[in-house]
């Protein structure tokens, strides 16, 4: 077995535990997307075109609320900004691969493919074939996400619409962020964004969401800045 193939398989292996955790999310996404009013083909196409879990959940929610395209695109951009961090963090390890590889690996660069890859890269060792590791992790996740979306779409279409299933979306977000509420600036960012969202709700084009998110981010950064200023004093 050559080195490239070995790295590829290592990448898939490292991804397997994550795949198990992601699968139910794909199911829920697919089911909710069709419940929110997306057509089957649209729900599946989003998993291919956007390929980013939380952004897809939010977009499904926004489609259900009749949000204009521009606000949805802005929201996707804000929610996915963190991918720039992953891009920066992996860049030194991928600087010598061809442009085609860079394009392919960038398309596959999700939270879940990044996590095992950066750990693997930071271990060091021969780096010549390490892009194959990210390819393995990325393709593993991509396949998992497409299949789970498809099954979710199928199940979601079969469920009656009056089950309040759309409530699973905010519940999903609660499950994702509540465990991260550890430091005061994070808690303050979340609560201020939430409260502003209540008052900004009547704004047109669902702009309240963007306003609230920006306020929350500003509050978090201001409090963090004050804390670190105190620490250096």
């Amino acid at each position: 077995m050559n080195e490239a193939r070995k790295e590829f398989i290592k990448g898939i292996r490292a991804e397997i535990p994550i795949l198990i955790g992601v699968f139910p999310f794909g199911l829920i996404y697919g089911a909710l997307a069709v419940n929110a009013g997306l057509k089957t083909i649209e729900a599946q196409a989003m998993s291919v075109l956007v390929f980013a879990g939380s952004a897809q959940f939010i977009t499904a929610q926004l489609v259900g609320m009749g949000t204009p395209a521009l606000v949805m695109v802005l929201t996707i951009a804000v929610v996915n900004l963190r991918h720039m961090l992953y891009s920066a963090s992996l860049a030194p390890y991928l600087k010598d691969v061809s442009l085609k590889w860079k394009v392919l690996l960038s398309y596959l660069l999700t939270d879940e493919a990044y996590a095992p890859s950066i750990l693997h890269y930071e271990e060091g060792g021969a780096l010549d074939f390490k892009h194959w590791f990210l390819l393995g992790a990325g393709i593993g996740l991509w396949t998992d996400w497409q299949i789970s979306t498809a099954i979710g779409v199928f199940l979601g279409a079969a469920l009656p619409a009056n089950l309040s299933l759309d409530f699973a979306l905010p519940l999903t977000f609660i499950a994702m962020i509540v465990p991260t509420m550890k430091k005061f600036p994070t808690i303050a960012a979340a609560s201020s964004a939430g409260v502003v969202a209540l008052f900004a709700h009547p704004l047109p084009y669902k702009l309240g969401l963007i306003v609230a998110a920006l306020v929350g981010i500003a509050v978090g950064m201001a409090l963090e800045g004050r804390k670190s200023a105190e620490a250096t004093r």
Binding site: S54, I58, Q61, T75, V78, V79, L81, R82, M84, L85, F167, L169, P170, F173, I174, M176, I177, T180, M181, P185, T186, I187, A189, A190, S191, A193, G194, V195, V196, A197, L198, H201, G208, L209, A212, A213, L214, V215, G216, I217, G220, M221, E224
Partner: peptide, 18 residues
């Protein structure tokens, strides 16, 4: 630093009105 606060801010802005 801003990136760190995007998930709590965006998700809360969706959760609270719901």
């Amino acid at each position: 630093r801003a990136l760190h606060y995007i998930p709590p801010a965006v998700f809360s802005a969706i959760i609270f009105p719901e």
